[in-house]
């Protein structure tokens, strides 16, 4: 790499100078790919009420017109009611058609809840899914450690008391696998409507989700086009402002909306606020000197090195998620 051509590292390095130019460019690409490459009549997009699906939808609406988009809301019994309210607000503002598909019955059919709750009861015999809530996440930040994070499970009982234990491997795998039915059921429903309408499925992961492996393979990782998979989270917010995404969506804390207890994405997976993670990931990907990054980020060079090592580990241990099926020829 020619280091002399690299912009000096600064807190503004990811700022999009002309959002309208980027939106126009993404719009041209989307239009070309939906109609030209994939030869489909429109787009189906899953709307979660979050920033990523909202920006993806607003971008696509600008590219091909809202009349050629179907927005799908796919709540299930652990979803926050706010998710559907915000998704509807976005869809109404853009003027696109929506369908609500409650996936709880499908998940009951897969025994998603039963399998997850049985694994939870192995750890907490007192757990009652009707009266109690649960979530899994990283208890302490292992950001500066070369050890991978250790997942814990928390139940919240009647009086609001939280009880946390380390997840044994079998229960961890079972809870994750059962929960992943949610994303995979949503993917099935998106493709049902896409095939029925001869539309394409436009996916919503951002750069961090894609590169760090925060998605479910053949779940939310299953789509035909992912127009924001190269954008950092702060850039997604910047585009959201430009596209006039409703303020409540922009101000909402990103959550997993997967477990019965509320849980932020930072708590579950990322371990860093987005503003910091964006800059650090950019520096990591572009091989910036840890000393230069340290001065801007107000962390020691040693801390920066450890965070980079953490990123590298996350990326390499999730390669499997990004791999296409292995084929023998």
């Amino acid at each position: 790499m020619n280091h002399s051509s690299k912009k000096p590292f600064s807190k503004d390095i990811l700022k999009i100078d002309s959002p309208h130019l980027l939106v126009d460019e993404l719009g041209r690409k989307l239009k070309n790919d939906i109609y030209g490459t994939l030869r489909r009549k429109g787009a189906v997009i899953g709307l979660s009420g979050g920033i990523d699906s909202s920006v993806t939808c607003a971008l696509t609406a600008k590219a091909i017109g809202p009349e050629n988009i179907l927005g799908l809301m796919m709540p299930e019994k652990d979803s926050s009611p706010e998710s559907e309210i915000l998704a509807r607000k976005l869809a109404d503002g853009l003027g696109l058609k929506t369908i609500v598909e409650n996936i709880s019955p499908a998940l009951e059919g897969f025994k998603c809840y039963e399998r997850r709750d049985t694994a939870t009861k192995n750890i907490f015999p007192e757990f009652d899914p009707v009266r109690h809530k649960m979530k899994i996440g990283i208890k302490d930040s292992g950001l500066y450690s070369n050890l991978p994070p250790v997942f814990h499970i928390t139940i919240i009982i009647e009086n609001g008391q939280e009880i946390t234990k380390r997840l044994p491997p079998d229960e961890f795998r079972t809870i994750m696998a059962a929960s992943d039915f949610k994303q995979r059921s949503r993917m099935s429903m998106l493709y049902y409507h896409a095939e029925r309408l001869h539309y394409t499925v436009v996916g919503t992961p951002n750069k961090h989700e894609e590169r760090q492996g925060f998605f479910v393979k053949y779940g939310d990782g299953g789509a035909d086009i992912m127009p924001i998979a190269h954008l950092y989270k702060t850039q997604v917010y910047q585009i959201a402002e430009y596209l006039k995404v409703p303020k409540e969506i922009i101000e909402r804390t990103p959550t997993t909306d997967t477990y019965s207890a509320e849980q932020t994405q930072e708590e579950f997976f990322f371990q860093l606020p987005f503003e910091e993670m964006d800059l650090l990931w950019y520096a990591y990907e572009n091989n910036y000197d840890t000393g230069d990054v340290s001065k801007v980020m107000d962390r020691s060079a040693d801390e920066i090195s450890k965070i980079f090592a953490n990123f590298k580990r996350k990326q390499s241990t999730t390669d499997y998620l990004r791999m296409a099926p292995i084929k023998y020829i």
Binding site: P148, V150, R166, P168, P169, R173, R313, T317
Partner: peptide
């Protein structure tokens, strides 16, 4: 051998190892 730095074990491997 640094089993985590060298990518031999991930989160799941760590949990299994503790177990």
């Amino acid at each position: 051998t640094l089993i985590f730095v060298d990518g031999i074990f991930d989160s799941m491997g760590f949990l299994s190892l503790i177990n």
